[in-house]
Design a protein around this nucleic acid. Structure first.
Lengths: 223, 223
DNA sequence: TGACTTTAGTCACACAAAGTGACTAATTCG
DNA sequence: CGAATTAGTCACTTTGTGTGACTAAAGTCA
């Protein structure tokens, strides 16, 4: 992967793999094969005929042994910033992985997002792009659900949203909104987590609903 | 632009230039130089050292003689679908242009989005990506304002939102939301449009405001 | 065992935001 | 002049959100 191809490839596909670790998001980095103390995002130069998405999925599988529960293109990054390869352009993909099932292969490690090592400039831009995409997709796509295992308690779901939104949420409001959206289905299972009353388990199972029939929203400040 | 380079370029930059024409969005296409009855999006293969954004801006200027009022990357498109060039990957940019100042050069023409000619498959995907980006950025970025001239009436603004959202809006609600967002500033000018009371002119001038302090929104249906 | 702590889950009320129709204002047309 | 047309505002209703207090079911510890 990291050896230089004989005819220089003009683009790469890079994966920003994200999971929730402790109370923060974490990103998967791979140790540089030549300079062992340096790190970079997992990447590859796609085979001819391979789609971009397939290349990103392969990159993720090579790192984790399994596919992310969610993949989405972040965009193309060029703009002269340096990259481990000599490619002029890199296409970045965001991949989400529940932390429970995320066992990285050797030389891959999760880094909490507040504690990342120095990265090549273009990849640093990709990480920023990934967090931005994450924020803006948060209420358009089931991001939080894809970071959780298949069954979860509503408290876990709320904590995941709190992590992603970076603020505390009120339990009653959260559950009221969740009910209105018809996104989860209760299981006939409960989980007792040490103290306190056991919590019912739920799974993500969106039912058809009428799209909220709102007017305009002006949710931007500047430009 | 459309001649095949000696060493095949591996990627192109394509521009989806959008304006509001009549009661519909329109996209700028260029007549194919070899097959005169076929059309495609404006594109170019970037010079070495040129940033992606700069390449997209040049492409737009070449077509319109001026820069779009808004540019945003849509993403990278590959996936084996055919493109006028032989590039494996194309990076698409969305560009917005107020219709008043949009005078296309020769061999460029606006096509209403419901009435597009057949396009190369990859470019068709870009157009779909552009409309999707447009929808999702609508309440995150001043899309509507960038499709209007610098000064406009509130009715024009509302009509633009109605066009973009594909539904009628109630005047009072629209203005109430607009006021709350502190996005426009009234001018000391009025415009009389034939019949009826003259309308005051406004310009886009966002003032700092507190971000609406909402909780979660679950605005998605399926995955 | 029984009081206390802890977490889950719900309720009800206050308040804010959005939908809506009816109103006033200023102009053109005949 | 009055009718028609477009701009702009108001007040009322309906819906959604923030919030604290409540009940429920478990563990802990004397």
């Amino acid at each position: 992967m990291r050896e230089r191809p004989s005819k220089t490839a003009l683009y790469t596909v890079d994966a920003v793999l994200v999971t929730a670790m402790g109370n923060e998001l974490a990103i998967l980095l791979v140790r540089n094969s030549s300079e062992r103390e340096r790190w970079s995002l997992p990447w590859r130069t796609p085979q001819t005929g391979e789609t971009l998405e397939a290349a990103a999925a392969s990159t993720a599988e090579e790192a984790l042994g399994e596919s992310p529960t969610w993949m989405e293109q972040i965009g193309a990054f060029g703009d002269g910033k340096r990259h481990p390869s000599e490619a002029e352009v890199s296409v970045a993909y965001l991949g989400l992985v529940p932390h429970e099932t995320a066992a990285p292969r050797a030389s891959y490690t999760w880094f909490q997002i507040g504690d990342l090592p120095s990265l090549p400039p273009r990849q640093r831009a990709m990480v920023e792009g990934a967090t931005k995409t994450l924020q803006s997709s948060l209420d358009q796509a089931p991001i939080a659900f894809r970071l959780l295992p298949a069954t979860f308690t509503l408290s876990e779901l709320q904590q995941m949203y709190e992590l992603l939104m970076g603020k505390r949420l009120h339990k009653a409001s959260f559950r009221r909104a969740l009910q209105a959206a018809w996104l989860v289905e209760p299981m006939d299972e409960w989980r007792s987590e040490g103290r306190g009353r056991p919590a019912q388990l739920f799974r993500y199972l969106p039912k058809k609903k009428r799209r909220p029939h709102r007017g305009v929203r002006f949710d931007f400040l500047y430009p």
